[in-house]
């Protein structure tokens, strides 16, 4: 049975992620400590809530350096929602006013979603709802990527107040428009994948992505 290790640092919808992985045939292990992380074949970094709080949770558990080291070694890593945002270098979502550092595995930063749409009308934030994906990073479609099961226009469930701005064009795998803004919906570099949306909450198209990760 394929084993997936889910990083458990107290800031996630762990059960939903676990159930989706199990539905896709994975044996799920939870890792709260560096020792439990060691030897993992595949890692999922879930996350909901605020960026600074999420990073503080990883730091308190001593998981920041082990996650960085494993990702750099090529252990497949899937970051979901806040877990994707933490893959980047830093976020404006912080209590101190200064940007909060992230894991730094994908160059770029995380910034607030504008409170106006591109026509100047008021836009509710957070962005909550199902949004269609479009290929990004100069791609015409998702073939040859971890999203090969996705047809452009397939809808996924988002809930976020901040969005990622990867520095390298090719690291942006998908965007999803909200109020006319093309928000980053997924990042991908080598064995590192991040989804701003919740595949575990996105019905059949989401489960297909979870399945692809389990089957890697």
């Amino acid at each position: 049975m394929r084993t997936v290790t889910v990083i458990n640092y107290g800031r996630s919808n762990l059960l939903s992620v676990r159930r989706a992985l199990e539905h896709c045939g994975a044996a799920v292990r939870l890792a709260q400590t560096p020792a439990e992380l060691a030897g993992a074949e595949k890692l999922v970094l879930p996350g909901v809530g605020a960026f600074a709080d999420g990073m503080a949770g990883l730091e308190a558990a001593g998981l920041v350096e082990p996650i960085r080291a494993m990702a750099r070694r090529g252990v497949p890593l899937l970051g979901i929602c806040l877990g994707m945002q933490m893959l980047l270098e830093e976020s404006d979502e912080s209590d101190t006013g200064a940007p909060c550092p992230g894991l730094g595995l994908i160059p770029g930063r995380v910034q607030a979603i504008p409170a106006r749409d591109t026509a100047g009308a008021k836009l509710p934030v957070p962005n909550i709802g199902w949004r269609p994906l479009a290929p990004a990073g100069g791609r015409a479609d998702f073939s040859g990527t971890p999203f090969s099961s996705v047809q452009p226009g397939d809808e996924f469930y988002f809930v976020h107040g901040y969005s990622a701005h990867p520095a390298r064009l090719q690291d942006a795998l998908a965007t999803a428009a909200y109020g006319g803004h093309n928000l980053c919906a997924a990042v991908w570099h080598g064995s590192i994948l991040g989804t701003q949306f919740h595949p575990e909450k996105s019905a059949a198209p989401g489960l297909a992505l979870v399945q692809a990760f389990v089957d890697l």
Binding site: L15, R19, V159, G206
Partner: peptide, 29 residues
């Protein structure tokens, strides 16, 4: 949470952060 893979909100009688946590742990988003 075992067979429905869309967002779920739960409410009714939530009086504390601990009550909220119990619902989130049980599978609410």
């Amino acid at each position: 949470s075992a067979d429905v893979f869309i967002p779920v909100t739960a409410g009714g009688g939530v009086r504390s952060a601990a009550d909220a946590e119990a619902l989130l742990r049980a599978g609410a988003d």
